[in-house]
Amino acid sequence: MSPSTTERDGGPAVPDDGAQPLLGFGEVRTCLIQNLAGLSPSASVALMQLTPGSPVSKVDRPTRRVVSPEQVTGVDCRLHVAREGRGRAIGTVLSHAVVTNGRILQGTAHVALTSATAKERREWRHYLRQPGVIEVLGSPNPHNVMDGYLTDVSPARGLDLASISDRIIGEVQQSNRLDHTTALRTGTAVVRWAATLAPQPPQAKPTVGITKSDVPNFHVIRLNGSPEDLPLLIRFCEEFALHEWLLTTVQDVIVPRAETDIARDRDPLDSLLFALNELAPLWMPPTHLGPDMKALWEAMESRTHYSRLFERQTARIRDLRDQVKIRPPRRY
């Protein structure tokens, strides 16, 4: 992939000692910003200024996307390894927040795993020099490490990216720059992902597999790529999470609620218009980000048909809106 698909240089660094990452892990949470109105561009930038003095990055098209500087959290913990013993992970996790169109908030925690450069824990400043890299002691099999991470529960037995991504959401939502008014009651969606990273032949494309968990609003993604693909994979998972949240919100929250409201003679127009005006324009698959992203996205689409499903839901919302306009509910 080309480096131009990244927005920032905040992706996990290649470690100093030249060890290539074997795995990339991450978790993305997506929810609505707790503010009555959508945030202006400058308000979004101010909200994402989580680290004073570090630049916030901003892209205006096709949707306005504002990304906070990376936050760094130190860890030294057991890894939850499937099928075999344990491993120990030492290093730092990166996390950032993303605001899309002043409405949607995402919290992402991510990390690249490499083999340890020493048998023991090293000085802290060694790990600070490679933010976002975790060294794994005890050389467990990478596939077992990956399965262990993806199947870990709450509270986490191993590396807890869930708490880190949850914390960044909580901190942003608590900001005094927001009015803390809930514009639409919806859930928070979680996407947990893991990527195996290995040098790929030149023509090879990254691959993706998505599993919907039986836990509501929880998806698991497995990816494949070369170590340099990691920023692209992180972005893909964020985009998938955003679109998945949009689809779920429209399909499972807005449409059923509007149907009930109509059946019970209550006015559903507010949430219908919210969906049409605020959410529908956010459906913008990230295929413009380069051929690899396009390939990944289209592979995902060909299985899930998300775009078609979303279109169908928005059509349904327009129908409901027209129906309400023609025959307003009695309590309207």
């Binding site: 004073p52 959290t73 030294d76 913990c77 730092t92 824990r121 986490a156 191993g158 807890d160």
Partner: peptide
């Protein structure tokens, strides 16, 4: 003006205790 003390405070990454897996805030 630049809030230098805020900036430096924001760059601090606490050293992880053994067992720190990210659950607790720094």
């Amino acid at each position: 003006q630049s809030a230098l003390a805020d900036i430096v405070a924001g760059l601090i990454v606490e050293e992880a205790a053994v067992g720190a897996n990210g659950s607790r805030p720094p």
